[in-house]
Design a protein around this nucleic acid. Sequence first.
RNA 1: CGGGGCGUAGCUUAGCCUGGUAGAGCGCCUGGUUUGGGACCAGGAGGUCGAAGGUUCGAAUCCUUUCGCCCCGACCA
Length: 589
Amino acid sequence: MQFWSQTYIPTLKESPAEAEIESHKLLLRAGLVRRVGGGLYAFLPLGKRVLDNVTEICREEMNRGQAIELLMPAVIPTEQWKEGPRWNAVREVMFQVISAGKDAKVPEEPQYVLGPTHEEVITPLIGSEISSYRDMGKTFYQIQTKFRNEIRPRYGLMRAREFIMKDGYSFDANDEDAEATYHRIAKAYDRFFARCGLDFISVEADAGIMGGAFSHEYMVPAEVGDDDVVYCQECGYSANVEKATSGLVPRDIVDAEPIGELEKFETPGAKTIEKLAQEPYNIPADAQFKTLLFVGDEKLFVVVVRGCDQVEEAKLSSLGYQLIRPATVDEIFEAMGAYPGSLGAIKGTLKDRSKLDGIYGDEALRLIGNGVTGANEKAMHVKNVNVRRDLDLDRFGDFRKVQEGEPCPKSGQPLKIARAIEVGHIFKLGTKFSENEKFGAMFDDADNKSQAAVMGCYGIGISRTLQAIIEQSHDKWGIKWPWSVAPYQVVITLLDPDLEEAATLANTIGVAAEAAGASVLVDDRAERPGVKFKDADLIGIPLRITIGGRGLKNGVIELKWRDEDDKQEVAIAKATSIIASAIREKASN
RNA sequence: CGGGGCGUAGCUUAGCCUGGUAGAGCGCCUGGUUUGGGACCAGGAGGUCGAAGGUUCGAAUCCUUUCGCCCCGACCA
C-alpha cells in the first residue's frame, strides 16, 4: 500500500508547450516523465512503475518463448561495429564516445559507440562460445537502454534519443529451425502486446538495412504513427507501405502494341506531371512516365514509374544497393543531358548511358503501354512512347507506393491504408552477421563442416510501447491504464483522511485488495475531493474506491471503474469481499 | 540538413508592432472560511524577460550573432 502523500506524483493541470500529441501531454501531466534534454526523458516514480510492469510482462513472455535473458554493455568498442556489415549505414545515428581524461587524445575514430542495437556484439560473443551444432537453437534477449542520435526526436518517448528496448537474437543450425524460432518469438510478441492491452496488427515489413529473408512489424494503429500500414479487411493481408504490393497490374497483362511513331512536341514551362495534365496538353498523369534518378553506392541509376505513382524508396533496396539517395541536379544532367522536368528514358536520347548503372521500370508502366515522357531536351516531351519498344529499361520491378483502394494482391478487394506506431520488429536475418570469420558465429555441423549460424533478431520498443498504450487508451480526463500495466491498479480516494473511521476502513480495504493481488495507492492528501477525483482520472488508475464521511454515515463506499461511466455503491460490510473478487476477476483476464 | 514557429516566475501566458525599467491565471507559502468532481477571501515569496554583442539618455520591446525547444520535410534498425 502506497500513500500518495509519501510518494511523488507531480500532476499538472495544463500541459507544457513541449508536448503536441495527447499521449505526450498525458505523460507529462500525469507526472510519469519529465524532459531532461531533446529526446531525453527521466521516468518519475509513477512512470517507472508502469515501465517495470511492461518490462516484466515482456520478460515473462520472452521466457515463455524459450528465450534466455542476458545483459550486454551499452558502451561498445567501435572496432566491433566496424567489422560488422552495417557500420557505414548506421554510424551517423550512433552516439560516439570519444575519450576520457584531460590528457587523452581525441582519436580520428571514436573508441566506443553507444549501442543502438546489439547484433555486432552478440554475434561474436555467442560465436566465440559455441562450436557445435549441439549448441545451436538458442535465443537470447536483453532489456536495456539504447541510444540513437535521432535526426529529429519527437513526441516524447515515441522517438527518443535514449530509450528502452527489448532486443533478442536467435542462433539456429539451419533455415528450418530458424523459421520455427521466428514463429515462436512471433507468438511471444502476440502475447506480449495483447497483455499490454493494445490493439495491434503484425504486418509484413521491409527489412531495411538489417537485410535478411523476411520480417514483420508489430503496429499499433494511431493517427500519430510514423508508418503507413496497408491492409485488406477481406483476407487479412497486411504490410508496411514500404513493402506492400497490390494487384493493380494483372499477372497476365499483355503489353500494348505501339500506336505510332515517336513524336516530339514543345512544352514550354511544363516541368511537372501536373502541368502536363492540364491545358493545353491534357495528358493524364497515368499516361505519363516519371523518370527519377538515384545514387546507389555512388552509382547513378534511373527508376521510371507512372506519372500518377510515387516511388517507394524502400523498395529500391531490392536492386542491391546499400545506400541510396536521390541524385543531385548536376549528377542528373551529366548522365541525361537534361534537368528534372524534361527527363525521359527513351533509347538513344540519353547524354551518357554509360554513367548509368541501370534503368529500372516499375511494373505498372505496362498499364500505360503508350505514353508521354521527357525528351531530355529543355521544354520538349515525346509522345507515342511505347514501353517495350522505346524505353531503355534493363528490367521491370515493383518500385511504386501502393495507394488506398487498389486491389489486394491476395483477395482483390480494395486495400485500406492506416497510420500506425511501430512497437516491435522481428527479422529472420539469415547469416548476414554470423558468416564473418572473425566476428561471426560459426559452428561445426554433424558432418564436421563449418557453418554460419542462421540468425534472427527481435526488437520491442518498451518505452515506446508504454506511450502507445496511452495514445490508444485515454479520454479527455486522462489516461485509462489497462489493468496489466497500471502503475497502481486500485486507488483508495480518502475524502476525509482525518476521520479515523475512514482511515481505518481504507487500511482494511487496502490490505484486502493487496491480498487479492492488486497494487494499491491511497490518496491521503489534504486536498478537496474534486482535486483527488481529477488526479485519479488523470493518472488513470483502473479502479477507484471512494471512502468519505458522507458514505460512511450511510454505511457505503463507492466503486468506480476508470473505463466505465457508472459508479457503484457497496455496503461496507460486503465491501472487502466484493472488491477482492472484482480484483481476482480482473487479474485473471 | 532545408522550411516555419516559439523562448517572459515551477506551468500556461499578456506586454514587443509604436523603446520609458514587467502583469495575469494556475501552482507554491501564511492565516481564515470551506469540503462528494480541479473552492473562496486576505496576505506573501518567486522573473539576470534564453545568452552575447550593438543602437539609444533609456531595450523584454529595435538590429546582429548565438543557443535551446516545438512543428513540417528529408531521414528512421
